[in-house]
Design a binder for these strands. Sequence first.
RNA 1: GGCCCGCUAGCUCAAUGGCAGAGCAAGUGACUCUUAAUCACUAGGUUCUCGGUUCGAGUCCGAGGCGGGUCACCA
Length: 496
Amino acid sequence: MSEAEQSLFDVRLAKLERLRSRGIDPYPHTFDRTHSTAEAAALLETAEAANSADAKTETVSLAGRITAMREMGKASFIDILDGEGRLQALLRKNTLGEEYEILKDLDLGDWIGVTGPMFRTRTNEATIEVQQIQVLSKALRPLPEKWHGLADVEVRFRQKYLDLISSEDARRVAKLRSRAVSSIRRFLDDRGFMEVETPVLVPVAAGAMARPFITHHNQLDRDLYLRIATELYLKRLIVGGLEKVYEIGRVFRNEGVDFYHNPEFTMLESYEAFADYNDTMVMVEEMTKFVATQALGSTKVDFQGTEIDFAPEGGWPRLNLRDEVIKHSGIDFLEYPDIDSLKSQMAAAGIDVSQQASWGGLMDKLVSDKVEPHLFQPAFLVDYPVEMSPLAKRHREDPRLVERFEGFVAGMEICNSFSELNDPVDQRKRFEEQEALHKAFKDEDMDRLDEDFLVAIEHGMPPTGGMGMGIDRLVMLLSGHRSIREVVLFPQLRSR
RNA sequence: GGCCCGCUAGCUCAAUGGCAGAGCAAGUGACUCUUAAUCACUAGGUUCUCGGUUCGAGUCCGAGGCGGGUCACCA
């Protein structure tokens, strides 16, 4: 702590001691709150509707943090912030007597409890006239500046509580996220899904193409991985006869950090027996509509100046991937089934192909460069090549493709879904191809063979529609933020 | 990881290579309807770190740290 910082700290410590010397406990165990700030304001409005203009309510008790103090000698206004909002308190010497002196030892940031009737000031603001005041917790460090708030992005993320104290938007996003997640649970629960928990520490990091975090179990003396997906465990439960399962859980990918990526993020995965990807598409439409309505009160949201409608007339367009790629790049990928020809076509279309090695990797680049940026309003890209999708079932009409869709909003992939591959022989072959690719292209992330999973589906997995959705990204869309760090309470940062 | 930008008082921000400043917060005083309260005064600095150039560096140069942006990879 700097000297200047220390002196601010010392001033508050002195106030703390002064409170104690006056017999006031600056850290009491409890406070009997009767109303939130919002409830108190509502109570006043009720009283005003019943009586005349200058109504007073019964005595209420409020608690919150001091965010502003306006002292005028023998009367002072204090702004109190609680979980629902801000409310003004009036303290007057002729009401409080000796107790009024406590103001000298209060600071911005302190928690207080106040008791008294609600009334309206001359400037028409709902206010509590304080008859009793109690310190609930003395703060020893100062708050960020009251008008500009906290602008330093680094401090906002490292000390999230300061962001939450000084930014209405930070509080809004935190609440929105909570409402979104709980409404997802309600949606799935109401449809007969059961929520389950599967291992975070796994012997094989499979179920997606990503680099895993590695850790070590001392007693077992073996390396374990943090899961990169929940997919293969949820499918084991489908094999076991749990027909509709889902998990909302943290997954971990040891990849770059940017606007759209945090090394740990929250994914919803759901699996429904006897369904296919067409059924799942409908479910995604209904779920996003439900979640937007529950969390926002509307299916329409402003995202960076453009309105997104999660429930467009006629549903989300189903866009055939092959058609879209041809439309935006002129390349028909089925015509170029080998790496060299596809690569030269892409290079001719002006795409940087220097980093990509496998055919699937090239396709991924082609789609994300040429097609995804055009998908602003909600839409599904449908029917991917088999090489890009080792866990998806072959298309019923074309074995070169799989029954897979991804949902896009604002150019961002928010979900990925298949008719799940339940043919154990084909699944083993696909895994083996992935393993071969993994060896051939060391730098590229491939899905890994999970023998235990193969044994499971060799016992018979029913036809299943599965889906994974990035919860952080969904909350970004709902809240209008284009950075994942704004919707994660504690985003990953370099340690100091 | 490459490239670009930023880092000054607790917070928000100034300062041609020439005395390091303002507002808020803090302290003292005045003030019984203010709301970015007002008024007067006071105090507050390792200018991210290390090194260099210079008579003189917050400012120029080099290295490093942290953050942001962007490109590449991943959802």
